[in-house]
Design a protein around this nucleic acid. Structure first.
Length: 464
RNA sequence: GGUCCCUUCGUCUAAUGGUUAGGACUCAGCCCUUUCACGGCUGCAAUAGGGGUUCGAAUCCCCUAGGGAUCACCA
């Protein structure tokens, strides 16, 4: 079987992480079966669609590296074929015109809800459909009212409902535009979609949409309704939860690989041994291993995956990421220094944007410690720093020599590294924590190191 | 409220009738150590509850409880 899947977002906001995950599942399933993965923008509701949102979807998919290699389909461009189908159903008496106005409808809706039954328009069985030429109408599908409908969902299993709960849904609006319920089915058929992989919030829709397919004698696709992502409160992820836009995470400093891996394992796992990045996931992916129950979004786990990913990436790639994000304008020397220390710095952050805290001491030419208390401490130890500086000046610049130089100073003065470490660190980085001092001294270079160690001199210049 | 779905450590999950119910994240402790991290080791912690079926149930069935989704001329 030639598998064809589609990711069909509506461009009414930004790319949601739930949507992103749906896209990932569609992508992986198609790839696994050497099939086609298509993207269709569901812009049937013009009022709620925007160019900006469409752009955001494309950018999001690009970022995750799960773009479709085929042409993007815009649902609104297929309106005429959807409308044609609506009228075809009307002609076959499988749909009907409903002239209910909004007040009547509202009343009907309340009544139906009270009784716990679906909306039944009185127009369903009226014969005078064409008499009110000037009144607005919608076209409703004539749902079967008896029997049952069964869907063998790949993820959710076999589910059967009674047809009597199906409502006569609107397929064509009064302004002659098709609704999602119609468009989606028609497009899926035209596109030859074999597997519909979408959020579980569509499961109820499947029972309604499948009626159109049956009426038209089209092929019934396989369905896979994947569980939703929940917030920590256990409810479907929505605007009231913190960051739900994919790009919010990009901005926070998460890598696309980490997002991909995390989103994927929220509901899917093959062997439960390690994180899945795209190559491995493509080989192992099966819909049968998708869990039925919703998963809560857990930032701590994401942090962990991101951190691992950051440390496994090529250093130059991380550098590019950071340089890009912070618009770093570094000369060759500074770039070399940054790249050399990057692996160590990365062990200390979970998102690469946190590296920003290292920029000041790493690159500032005239860096000196600004913290008042620490300044006093540095001034007190000025002589020690200068002496260490003098010793360093004499040594041939290598990791080994710098290490020996410091050790000799310690030995000579009957000290331990703990006696000089904190002071040195403060003078060189302005911080109480940092990577290994020897490598910092080595990477800063002799000139910069001596400048920073000569604290009083620096301080005087800055205080002027 | 109707309909449908779900329920294994706090979180993500493994275990398709037989395991001391496993792993990962988080957390705690220890080791390593010039600080902070990394890393290594150890620990805390779960089958929602109740009935069946069975020699044997997290796993199959029923009930209860809890949670979720959906009920638009949105998608």
């Amino acid at each position: 079987m030639n598998v064809v899947t589609r990711f069909a977002p509506s461009p009414s906001g930004y790319l949601h992480i739930g949507g992103a995950r749906t896209a990932i599942f569609n992508y992986l399933f198609a790839k696994k079966h050497s099939g086609k993965y298509l993207v269709r923008i569901e812009d049937t509701d013009k009022k709620r669609s925007s160019e900006k949102a469409i752009e955001a979807i494309h950018k999001g998919l690009s970022w995750l590296n799960i773009n479709s290699e085929y042409e993007i389909i815009y649902q609104s461009q297929n309106f005429s074929s959807h409308i044609k189908i609506a009228y075809e159903l009307l002609e076959k008496n499988l749909a009907y015109k409903c002239f209910l106005n909004s007040n009547e409808l509202q009343e009907l809706r309340l009544k139906s809800r009270e009784k716990g039954i679906p909306i039944k328009s009185p127009w369903r069985n009226r014969k005078d459909q064409n008499e009110d030429k000037n009144r607005e109408f919608v076209i409703r599908l004539k749902m079967p009212s008896e029997g049952t409908t069964t869907i063998d969902d790949i993820v959710q299993g076999t589910v059967t409902i009674k047809n009597e709960i199906l409502d006569d849904m609107v397929i064509l609006r009064s302004d002659n535009t098709p609704t999602y319920m119609l468009s989606s089915v028609v497009d899926d058929n035209n596109m030859g979609i074999t597997h519909i992989i979408r959020g579980d919030d569509h499961f109820n829709n499947a029972f309604r949409q499948i009626q159109i397919i049956k009426y038209l004698n089209w092929n019934i696709p396989y369905y896979a309704h994947i569980p939703l992502i929940h917030g920590t409160d256990g409810a479907k992820l929505s605007k009231r939860h913190n960051a739900t836009s994919l790009f919010a995470y990009k901005d926070l400093g998460y890598t696309s690989e980490a997002m991909f891996s995390y989103l994927l394992q929220l509901g899917w796992s093959a062997k439960n041994d390690e994180d899945y990045f795209v190559d491995r996931a493509t080989k192992l992916f099966t819909l049968e291993k998708v869990n039925k129950s919703p998963a809560k979004f857990d930032l701590k786990k994401l942090n962990n995956i991101n951190s691992k990913n950051l440390n496994n990436m090529k250093v130059s790639d991380v550098y590019n990421l950071v340089a890009n994000r912070f618009q770093l304008q570094l000369n060759d020397d500074e770039k070399k220094r940054f790249i050399a220390l990057l692996p160590e710095l990365l062990k200390r952050v979970q998102v690469y944007t946190d590296l920003e805290k290292e920029f000041d001491w790493l690159f500032q030419k005239d860096f000196f410690c600004k913290d008042k208390n620490n300044q006093i401490e540095l001034q007190k130890n000025n002589l020690m720093l200068i002496e260490i500086g003098t010793n360093l000046k004499k040594c041939k610049w290598s990791i080994e020599n710098i290490k020996n130089c410091l050790n000799q100073y310690i030995l000579k003065n009957s000290l331990t590294f703990k006696d000089i470490g904190p002071i040195l660190r403060m003078a060189l980085t302005g911080k109480t924590t940092s990577p290994d001092l020897v490598s910092i001294i080595y990477e800063l270079g002799c000139t910069i190191t001596l400048n920073r160690l000569n604290y009083n001199y620096q301080y005087k210049i800055k205080s002027k």
